[in-house]
């Protein structure tokens, strides 16, 4: 029976991986928020109606409801780690581009001002 769960888990990992690799803006964010909502519902229901989880776990052949919850948590964590990595990567790229612009702009100014100040200096002191 666990084979069903294994298949579902692998599908979940693949979906997360695709979302991570494709990465589009708004759609991606919407999917993340749906997952978040599902997660909140899952958390609430596990407190108030834990029997549902036991029932679902039996159905999937995982054993106890807490086990099922643990599996889902691990998968969710992987998803969060992946999207966070992507987001940081993008942020870093943007920051690099900006820092580079600043560096090059400042270098220009420096050269321009040295071009302006150098000729009078070589004329002798004033």
């Amino acid at each position: 029976m666990t084979i069903i769960f294994q298949i579902l888990a692998i599908i979940a990992v693949i979906v997360v991986a695709i979302v991570m690799l494709r990465g589009g803006g708004a759609r991606n964010q919407a999917i993340q928020r749906i997952f978040m909502l599902l997660f909140i519902v899952a958390a609430g229901s596990s407190i108030f109606v834990p029997q549902v989880w036991t029932f679902a776990a039996r159905l999937l052949g995982v054993g106890r409801g807490t086990d099922l919850l643990l599996y889902i948590t691990v998968l969710a964590f992987l998803g969060v780690a992946a999207t966070t990595y992507r987001r940081f990567r993008r942020l870093e790229n943007d920051l690099t581009a900006m820092a580079r612009q600043v560096a090059l702009a400042r270098a220009d100014n420096q050269q321009n001002s040295s071009e302006v100040t150098e000729p009078p200096a070589s004329d002798g002191d004033k």
């Binding site: 920051l95 820092a99 580079r100 600043v102 560096a103 090059l104 400042r106 270098a107 420096q110 050269q111």
Partner: peptide, 8 residues
């Protein structure tokens, strides 16, 4: 040298 400085 000409120095180009990264702010970070």
């Amino acid at each position: 040298a000409i120095v180009v400085q990264h702010p970070i």
